[in-house]
């Protein structure tokens, strides 16, 4: 737990661009909120590994979003059922169902399409929000944080030693 916290701090305080960190959060949201064994998650994994997305943040956020995904599963399924059964969209879904990608994407499961829609919206919203938060943290809050007594105490604690060892 301490190591994970230290790794997050390391990533936040590192010189990696906020885009890399924000992309990690957004992509973790998609892979975490949607059922793991879905075709789109192979693509997400490829993007995460191929592009310089911060792996630490991604691996930390993934399980957190998975827990959130389980919590919102009923909502996702209800939304998915609405999306799949909207009369105007049925011809499109039928066409997609009759393609190889469509057949393997499992989009025709209410939970898959519902959670994917929620995850996409959340991912798009999370990217700029987390980017702003990271920039602000580094520019304003980091210096302020270091002045707090709690932080000073923390620096004297075991977590700081772990952080230092991770940094080195």
């Amino acid at each position: 737990m301490l190591t994970i916290l230290a790794k997050i701090l390391k990533a936040l305080n590192s010189e990696q661009s906020p885009n890399q960190l924000a992309a990690a959060i957004s992509l973790a949201a998609i892979i975490g909120l949607t059922p793991l064994f879905s075709l789109h998650n192979v693509l997400i994994l490829l993007v995460v590994l191929w592009f310089r997305v911060n792996l630490t943040i991604f691996l930390v956020c993934w399980p957190l979003f998975t827990i959130l995904g389980l919590a919102i599963a009923p909502l996702a399924q209800s939304l998915g059922a609405d999306i799949l059964q909207t009369p105007q969209l049925i011809p499109m879904w039928e066409t997609f169902y009759n393609t190889l990608i469509g057949r393997w994407s499992n989009f025709y499961y209410t939970g898959v399409i519902g959670s994917l829609m929620i995850a996409l919206v959340l991912a798009v919203a999370l990217f700029p929000i987390s980017k702003i938060l990271i920039v602000n943290y580094r520019g304003k809050w980091l210096a302020k944080f270091e002045q707090y007594k709690v932080v000073k105490l923390l620096k004297a604690s075991k977590i700081w030693q772990v952080y230092q060892s991770v940094s080195n």
Partner: peptide, 20 residues
């Protein structure tokens, strides 16, 4: 209509016209 109940997150299957 809906038939298969899979894992928690996956939900129910909705059937579409199958050309195959």
């Amino acid at each position: 209509t809906e038939e298969e109940k899979a894992a928690v997150q996956v939900g129910d299957k909705v059937y579409f016209k199958d050309e195959k």
